[in-house]
Write a protein that binds this DNA or RNA. Structure first.
Lengths: 212, 212
DNA sequence: TCCATATTGTACCAAAGGGTATTTTTAAGT
DNA sequence: ACTTAAAAATACCCTTTGGTACAATATGGA
């Protein structure tokens, strides 16, 4: 270490602030003025610390994954809890975040993912967003195809379909949360989708009683 | 009529073009250059014909409602078709639009609605977007509470909840469609949600057999 | 203490943003 | 043919955008 002036801001705190701006306004909508004002630093500081708008966005997005997505996963693998309950806990944990008053409403990814199609998101950032999109889907699909209870219920027969259903529901609730629909109402939606998943698969799987 | 030069462009065609730009890029992301280029007119023409960016957006949004939303409604009220089928037809009609290759993927409203929370959408436009958001929900809720079959199935017991479930599913599919998930996969999601709605309500309604 | 170095703060840049003033066309009415 | 008026084209306005140069300010090491 060869000396130099000390940094006045905390990198993680600044990243958190940047994340919330992107969350609220999207990549395109978030201006450097918006960002640096929230981060409480000035432009040169931000450029020297994070590179540029795109790499700040990438770091903010990774920060989001680490601090806002991973926490929910525990619920999925809790021991001695029925699958349906685990899924419900997982989903409601996410819905809780979507509806939190501590942060922008909805899901960080919904707005930014939408922007990708518009073509105004730089290549690297777009690639990351697409990669992230896939993660929960494959995760849920894996759960459906490996979990003992899922298998015994036949939910593994269409694990990707079931995963997609749940993930789609979460995307929907994110959208609704942004429009200020309260979590109590969204809980009903989640319940309904879960009922659908568990019933559909039952029908689907049940070997049609060999009619004589 | 007091003469003057003839308009070279068709207002509806131009509006359609503008709509597609807003659809793809959102209100904030769509620049006047993007818009006028797609509309194939120049800025002064656009300003004299439509006012400004905001009122162009409002007109484009109304154009969207007229041309892209109303068409689906027919399926809901078709005679001699079971409720579940009507709902499925309605929803798949919308999913078809969301996945169409003729237009931007997803739903016009999902991106723009998301932008409202960011605070960069002018007041009038925001008000319209919020108003539009409510429409399909109340429409479905009304259907659930008045349709004969819905009543006999007990779906009227929680008509707003059921409406919200379906609407949320459609918001979700819009999001997924934007990420290029094909309609065949989304059909499964819709089926699952419908199964959920019809089963949840059944359980919900069935007066628990008076245990002695 | 003085130097090297890293971070701040201010001022600035070129490009793109939404929006207009002005001129040039084109058409209808007389 | 000539006027009138509406649309189109060009050029321009100011503000904001993402991004930097440069001077001012701290800090640790020698």
């Amino acid at each position: 270490m060869v000396s130099g002036r000390k940094r006045k801001f905390n990198e993680q705190t600044a990243l958190q602030a940047a994340m919330e701006v992107f969350w609220a306004k999207g990549f395109v909508g978030a201006s450097l003025t918006d960002l640096t004002k929230s981060m409480n630093i000035n432009k040169p500081s931000m450029y020297s610390a994070f590179g540029n708008k795109e790499s700040l966005f990438i770091k903010a997005t990774q920060h989001y994954i680490e601090n806002n997505m991973k926490a929910h996963l525990g619920a999925l693998y809790a021991a001695n809890i029925p699958l349906k309950t685990r899924l419900k806990n997982y989903m409601m944990s996410i819905v809780g975040m979507q509806c939190s008053t501590e942060q922008p409403k909805g899901c960080y990814l919904v707005l930014c993912q939408s922007e990708v199609a518009g073509g105004d998101i730089p290549a690297e950032a777009a690639k990351l967003l697409i990669k992230i999109e896939a993660a929960p889907k494959t995760l849920l699909a894996e759960l459906f195809s490996t979990d003992k209870e899922a298998i015994s219920l036949g939910l593994n027969e269409n694990s990707t379909g079931n995963a997609l259903s749940l993930y789609t529901a979460l995307k929907g609730t994110a959208s609704m949360a942004r429009s200020k629909v309260p979590p109590t109402e969204l809980e009903f939606v989640i319940d309904t989708m879960l009922t659908g998943v568990f019933n559909t698969s039952k029908n689907h799987t049940a070997p049609s009683p060999k009619s004589p």
